[in-house]
Simulated scan of single mutants.
Amino acid sequence: MEKRVTRLGGLLAAYQRRDPAARSKLEIFLLYPGVHAVLYHRLAHWLYGRRLFFLARCVSQWNRFWTGIEIHPGAVIGHRLVIDHGMGIVIGETAEIGDDCLLYQGVTLGGTGKDKGKRHPTLGDNVLVGSGAKVLGPFTVGDNARIAAGAVVLSQVPPGATAVGVPARIVRMAGKPVYYADDVDQIHMEDPVRQELTALSERVSQLEEALRQQGNTKERTA
């Protein structure tokens, strides 16, 4: 019992650290749907582990109705998961989430088909998944990774990297460590596809200018 109280205290403290609107632990405990979703899931997962599948699904469906967050009873969730707002989040049966992760609204941790066995992603520790992002498939998102809002991730994300775009591409963080998942600027992220197109456009402009100068030189010597 004491261990459960300690874990709940750690969860509430994580919300206080990462949500500037949080005024007190009592407010978080009573009014934050992300906290309710995790607590209901603990019960559903306990029932699921004892093969009480119908009861587990009943609890998870009530959780979905009450919070707007759908977590399959079979999903494995680590400690201090912070769900910001949370409406529309879907977490599949074989998904695994590490400690100290942060999910925003509209996130899907889903599968890509009807295969049996492991078919949902595994998130390492301290991972951030931005609003509306879709992580689809049985691969791993490494520790300290960041997934930008609206990204569609279909393959493995290395530790400490950032995935951006549709489909997502990896942008490494130039050796800069991430200590907390909430230390993330979700606005000022560069799109690697745009960077490549910009570089190609600049190169084409340089070649056109070189051809123009070469033509002018030929005209003067003619």
Rank of each mutant, 00 (worst) to 15 (best):
L200A: 11
N63F: 01
R4Y: 11
G130D: 11
T67V: 09
V171G: 02
P20E: 07
L55E: 11
L31K: 07
D191Q: 02
D100C: 02
A148P: 07
M189D: 00
T162S: 10
Y104L: 15
S155F: 00
A22Y: 04
E96M: 14
E219F: 00
H85R: 10
R220W: 00
L136I: 00
Q61S: 05
I97K: 09
Q195R: 13
R23C: 09
L47R: 09
R212G: 04
H85N: 13
E209R: 12
Q61H: 07
R146A: 03
I71K: 04
R64D: 12
D191C: 13
P159K: 14
Y40T: 08
I77G: 07
G124N: 06
L197D: 05
V164R: 07
R220V: 05
A168Y: 01
G111A: 12
A222D: 11
D125S: 14
T6A: 15
V157E: 04
L154N: 00
Y40I: 00
V166P: 01
G34P: 03
F54W: 13
G113S: 14
L102V: 06
H79V: 08
F139V: 12
G92W: 00
W66N: 12
L55A: 15
R194K: 13
H45T: 10
A161E: 01
G86I: 11
A168T: 09
A75G: 12
V141Y: 04
I91A: 05
G215P: 00
Q156I: 00
K218M: 02
K134S: 06
V153D: 10
G78L: 03
A37G: 04
I97E: 04
R42F: 06
L200P: 10
A21Q: 13
P158V: 14
W62I: 10
I83K: 03
Y180K: 13
W62Q: 07
M1Y: 02
R17D: 15
T67C: 04
G175M: 07
A163K: 01
F53W: 13
V166W: 00
G113Y: 01
L81M: 01
G49Y: 04
P33W: 01
P177S: 11
T94N: 07
